[in-house]
C-alpha cells in the first residue's frame, strides 16, 4: 500500500474527510511544534499553539494552493499564529530556562564529535530562545521559513531596514554565544 501524498490528503480533507487531515497532522506535527517552540520557548504553550495552528489551517484550507507543498504553508500558519500570540502578550516574556537540559539525558553512548555537535545545537537553540522576541521572529522567518526581507517586513509590519538591522543584531548575538562556547 502506497502512502497517500499530501496533496491527496488535502483534497480529501476538502471533501470532508477529517481523518485525511488527521494524517496531515501526524506528518507535520513535529515540525509545526518546533516552529512554535522556537518562537515561544515553552513546551506546553508550543503544543497548544501547534494544535491551534492545525485547526486554523483546517478552516483556511480553501486558501491553500494544493499544488504547492503543504509543510511550508502549514509552518507559516503556525508562525503567524505564534507571532500574533507574542505580540498580544504583554509585557514581553522573559526567556525560559527550564528546558535547557533537554539533550542532557542520554548522551553517554553517542560519539564525542556528534555529542559536541549536539551540544552546540542545543546551545544555539537556547541562545535563540534568549533573544528578544523581535529578534527571534526575524531569525525564525529568515532561517526556518526562507522568507525574503520584503516578505518578513510584510509579515511583521516593519520596514525592510528594521528587518535588516534586527537580523544583523540577532546573528551577532548568536555568533557571540557560539564563540563563547567553543
Amino acid at each position: 500500500m502506497e502512502e497517500p501524498t499530501d496533496r491527496a490528503l488535502v483534497l480529501r480533507t476538502r471533501q470532508g474527510d477529517v481523518d485525511a487531515f488527521g494524517e496531515l497532522v501526524r506528518r507535520y506535527q513535529t515540525s509545526v511544534f518546533n516552529v512554535c517552540y522556537r518562537l515561544l520557548g515553552e513546551r506546553r504553550e508550543a503544543e497548544d499553539l501547534a494544535q491551534e495552528a492545525f485547526l486554523r489551517a483546517f478552516r483556511r484550507l480553501h486558501t491553500f494552493d494544493a499544488d504547492r507543498p503543504f509543510g511550508p504553508w502549514m509552518r507559516r500558519v503556525a508562525a503567524n499564529l505564534c507571532l500574533n500570540h507574542l505580540s498580544r502578550a504583554s509585557p514581553p516574556r522573559l526567556p525560559l530556562q527550564d528546558e535547557t537540559d533537554l539533550a542532557a539525558g542520554s548522551t553517554e553512548r553517542i560519539p564525542e564529535a556528534v555529542r559536541l555537535r549536539g551540544e552546540r545545537a542545543e546551545m544555539l537553540r537556547q541562545a535563540i530562545l534568549e533573544l528578544p522576541a523581535h529578534y527571534r521572529a526575524v531569525i525564525e522567518l529568515r532561517h526556518f521559513h526562507e522568507m525574503r526581507y520584503a516578505e518578513i517586513s510584510q509579515a511583521l509590519g516593519i520596514p525592510v531596514s528594521d528587518v535588516k538591522s534586527h537580523l544583523y543584531r540577532a546573528r551577532r548575538k548568536l555568533a557571540e554565544r557560539l564563540e563563547g562556547h567553543v
Binding site: 506535527q29 511544534f33 503544543e47 549536539g118 532561517h143 526556518f144 557560539l178
Partner: peptide, 20 residues
C-alpha cells in the same frame, strides 16, 4: 548553517487526537 541545522525536538504527545 548551524542555525538551520538545529534538530527538531521530539513531541512528547501526539497532537492528532486532540485536533481531530
Amino acid at each position: 548553517r548551524a542555525i538551520e541545522a538545529i534538530p527538531d525536538l521530539p513531541l512528547e504527545r501526539d497532537l492528532t487526537p486532540a485536533v481531530l
